[in-house]
Design a protein around this nucleic acid. Structure first.
Length: 888
DNA sequence: CCCTTGACTTGGATTAATCTTC
DNA sequence: GAAGATTAATCCAAGTCAAGGG
């Protein structure tokens, strides 16, 4: 077997690896092309580049993409693309300007700090502004600058909305009265007045935010000079393009694609929704919705497709072939179809991959567990499950009755009714547990060489599953390993915890692959796949149904670094940025509805307010066989406690059963509305009884194309980061700047309630640090004494080990050093304590527009690697060449 | 509409790899 | 160089939201 396998492997890898043809970095979209072109050129140019670690295999174009891309190139593509949708906002705008800006900026940049910053900004903005359709155009600049307004001012504005807001505006606000609209709502109103429960104290953190009032300009100015260094030139195409593609997806209403079609849609909405007011804001605001769809043409047929260095001839050939036939024909076809159709749903043209890999079969260990003190022989199947349980002895699932009883019920099915083992209480798994500990120890004791060899062996086996070729580009596959059997570990009080998650076989798996691609060989001899599909409207490569909940599926997708994922990631952020242009009106609209007589409207208004201000999740309904957690729409009466005069105390379990505790000051009308919603209800009743996520999102969509509840979280997180970085970054060394970044990151994590459990060793670590500090303080004291004595001509105190005679100067220096060391330790200790329950990673991965970070790094000469690790760099390859002046 | 299905994003914990320290 | 700490990668559960069917 082994032999056979390995040989297979070899072949495969060969396939991927050979050739050398032009290395293709990206997939065939317009974007990628450009990148490719330039990549070579730029290579050494940009500093970023230099720093990034390039992968040897080249496949990871990501980094390389960062390079500069000639903006020019893009236009052609675009132009063609847009024809039909010329009207769409984003698209058109993008074509036009941006490229220009940079150069000038850089030149002026050096000196005039204050201004340079704004210049940069302006170009950036230009992107949007130019677009006529886009709601409110260039105000961004001003906005940015004004975020600094004192809280009070903002608050005021905010409240003002009531009166003024009323009519929804027809056009995108030119009057941007509230410049601070862009700010997260939280910033505007003093948020947590109270304290937050156990978690962390929100109040502290926010305050700083509010307080700061300096101007942003300095920040940007400095950055500018950098631009040259870093990027070298003007680019930005990526951005634009992205915007092009971005909104597309499932455009439905918003999809500008077919302008004709679209028109009708709006109308419909109007009548439907607003009663009092009139037209849905969205219509008014955005007359033409954004989104350009990437026309099929864009996709174009990349003939040149080759896998980077890999790809055996045969493989390659296949690919090529497919491409031709497939994409070409499709392409032409699609163009003819209705505009919207074409690519609308199409996610890829050719797709080649090798399927999935299965966990090894169970190897019985033969250790006998005890039942009522006596050894019991188990069949391998029974033993396997017993072992899963035995091994979990140290986890706290063992204290949960649900876990144990679910386990027992499933295990008993394997044992059979008449088995000697009649109950779990009589079972003693210790022998198995001990055996497992020994195995673990053995593994740990292996020499480094052995470990390495083992690792390599595994890598070799998996190599062929790690990659897929999508439209001719080699991309990493995210999770190609089928989940091994185990006991289900639900979070929180999950009713199904402890149930046996059975082994998955090939016959459970559906493979999705290109029509012309070879069907992956089933890795388990004698078995076969459940089904083969060729569905290019989805991105999954394989799926099986979840053994715990058969209504759900487990999918195999491409990795985050793939351009398919990157593209949608970018679209997500573009949508959130779009919200920035609508948020003023949205706030005005919901504020007005706080007092609507229509209770549904009022609930929608209040819910939207909470989502905006607190970044709550939407809150879909859940089944009884899931943990009982809530989001905004599913909040219960008991989850919100009113505290006169205008505070609300939230306390509930959110996603993953993470506790959300927060007390915030809210608009008086919101406070009143909540009281009203709670009237005559029991604690367990729904607070928003007239609402659910689909109604809420349907409403949001009327306010802005594509808007849904989750967009607010992205928006809130990213705008907060952008704002804090701009405000708080000062001149200083890199470490200080990174500190600013971390502070902002932490703020975002707190807003999003991203928590982590404190590590077991936390307390120990803290006390160790305390000890060390005390020790150093002792040293310091001695040094001081010595210094005094030396000055008086006396010899230092004996202390043998301690230094011999030192000059006063030397002692002085030592004292200073020691003090610094103590200081640093104390600071480290504080941040450690502060962050013990805060998870910074989640927001970095999912909520913070990487372009904010990249642009900031460029402006402030912070190496991007200090902020993004390798996988983040790969994931955010699409953001690397952002203009240094980029603002969210 | 409402409910179910399907597909994709988000998220904390676990595990593996790497860096620090004594 | 091993123990400890940190960080990165992996794992897989748990959300969000669109769409389809009745």
């Amino acid at each position: 077997m082994m032999a056979a396998e390995s040989s297979d492997k070899l072949n495969v890898s060969d396939d991927f690896d050979d050739e050398d043809g032009p290395v293709i970095f990206k997939r065939t979209s317009a974007t990628s092309k450009k990148n490719q072109l330039l990549s070579e050129v730029k290579k050494s140019t940009s500093s970023l580049d230099g720093q990034t670690h390039r992968k040897s295999n080249g496949q990871n174009s990501g980094l390389q993409n960062c390079k500069i891309i000639p903006s020019v190139k893009t236009s052609p593509t675009k132009a063609s693309v847009d024809i039909s949708k010329a009207s769409t906002s984003r698209v058109s705008s993008s074509n036009v300007k941006s490229p220009v800006a940079n150069p000038k900026v850089s030149s002026s940049g050096d000196k005039s700090k204050p201004f340079s910053g704004s210049k940069v900004l302006s170009d950036v903005k230009e992107e949007k502004p130019s677009i006529k359709h886009v709601p409110r155009g260039n105000y961004e600049d001003s906005d940015d600058e004004e975020d600094n307004k004192p809280l009070s001012a903002r608050l005021k504005t905010n409240s003002n909305h009531n009166s003024k807001a009323a009519p929804i505006v027809k056009k995108p606000i030119e009057d941007s009265d509230d410049d601070d609209d862009d700010l997260p709502l939280s910033a505007r109103l003093s948020r947590n007045a109270g304290t937050s429960g156990s978690g962390y104290d929100h109040s502290d953190q926010k305050k700083p935010l509010l307080k700061v009032q300096k101007s942003h300009q300095d920040g940007s100015s400095t950055s500018i000079k950098q631009e040259k260094l870093v990027t070298g030139s003007v680019k930005r195409p990526l951005d634009k393009i992205s915007s092009l593609n971005s909104s597309v997806k499932k455009p439905k209403l918003s999809d500008p694609v077919s302008s004709t079609k679209i028109k009708q849609v709006p109308v419909k909405h109007e009548s439907k929704v607003d009663d009092d007011d009139d037209i849905p804001i969205s219509q008014r605001l955005a007359k033409s919705s954004p989104s350009g769809n990437k026309s099929s043409s864009v996709k174009k047929i990349e003939k040149a497709v080759k896998v980077n260095k890999s790809g055996s001839a045969s493989f390659k050939k296949q690919v090529k072939k497919m491409k031709k036939s497939g994409s070409n024909s499709e392409y032409s076809k699609s163009t003819k179809l209705l505009p919207s159709e074409g690519d609308g749903q199409k996610k890829w043209t050719t797709l080649v991959h090798n399927g999935v890999i299965f966990p090894p079969p169970y190897k019985p260990h033969g250790i006998k567990m005890l039942y009522k003190g006596k050894p019991v022989a188990l069949t391998p199947e029974q033993e396997e499950v017993a072992t899963m349980f035995a091994v979990m002895r140290d986890t706290d699932y063992m204290q949960k009755e649900t876990f144990k009883s679910n386990f027992w019920s499933d295990w008993r099915k394997l044992l059979g009714k008449n088995h000697v083992i009649q109950n779990l209480e009589g079972c003693d798994f210790t022998p198995i547990y001990d055996w497992y500990q020994v195995e673990k120890e053995k593994k740990k004791q292996m020499s480094t060489e052995e470990k390495k060899a083992l690792k390599e062996e595994k890598a070799k086996q998996e190599e062929k599953y790690m990659w897929a070729i999508v439209d001719g580009v080699k991309e990493k596959v995210g999770n190609f390993r089928v989940e091994p059997p185990g006991l289900f570990r639900g979070r929180g009080e999950h009713p199904k915890m402890g149930k046996l998650k059975r082994r998955i076989h090939p016959s459970d798996i559906t493979i999705n692959i290109g029509k012309d691609a070879p069907i992956p060989e089933c890795p388990i001899p004698g078995e076969k796949w459940k089904e083969i599909r060729h569905d290019n409207t989805v991105t999954w490569l394989a799926f099986w149904s979840d053994p715990i909940n058969p209504r759900l599926f487990k999918y195999v997708f491409l990795a985050a670094s793939s351009s398919l994922k990157g593209q949608s990631d970018k679209e997500k952020y573009e949508k959130a940025r779009m919200l920035k242009n609508y948020i003023g009106n949205i706030r005005a609209a919901y504020t007005k509805n706080f007092t609507s007589k229509d209770i549904t409207r009022r609930q929608i208004a209040v819910a939207t307010y909470l989502i905006d201000k607190l970044a709550l999740r939407a809150g879909n309904e859940k089944d009884d066989d899931e943990a009982d957690t809530v989001g905004c729409c599913t909040l219960k009466v008991e989850n919100v406690t009113a505290e006169a005069p205008n505070k609300l105390q939230f306390n509930f379990l959110g996603k993953d059963s993470i506790k959300y505790e927060n007390t915030v000051e809210v608009e008086q009308q919101v406070y009143n509305a909540i009281l009203k919603f709670q009237e005559e209800k029991s604690p367990g009743d729904d607070l928003f009884d007239k609402l659910d996520t689909s109604k809420l999102n349907a409403h949001l969509k009327e306010l802005m194309p594509g808007l849904t509840a989750k967009v607010f979280r992205t928006f809130n997180a990213s705008i907060t980061l952008d704002d804090m970085l701009t405000k708080d970054t000062k001149d200083g060394d890199v470490a200080e700047k990174i500190g600013v970044y971390q502070t902002a990151n932490k703020e975002v994590a707190i807003i999003c309630n991203h928590q982590r459990s404190v590590s077991k060793s936390h307390t120990a670590q803290m006390s160790r640090l305390t000890e060390k500090i005390a020790e150093l303080q002792g040293v310091l004291k001695h040094l001081k004494t010595d210094l005094d004595r030396v000055k008086k001509g006396k010899p230092p105190l004996k202390s043998a080990e301690r230094k011999r005679n030192l000059t006063p100067d030397a002692l002085d220096k030592k004292i200073t050093q020691t003090k610094a060391k103590i200081d640093k330790m104390q600071r480290d200790m504080k941040t450690k304590e502060d962050l013990k329950t805060v998870a910074l990673g989640t927001s970095k991965i999912n909520y913070l527009d990487p372009r904010i970070t990249v642009a900031w790094c460029k402006r402030h000469e912070v190496p991007i690697e200090k902020i993004f690790n390798k996988s983040l760099l790969a994931k955010f390859a699409w953001a690397m060449d952002v203009d240094p002046g980029f603002r969210f």
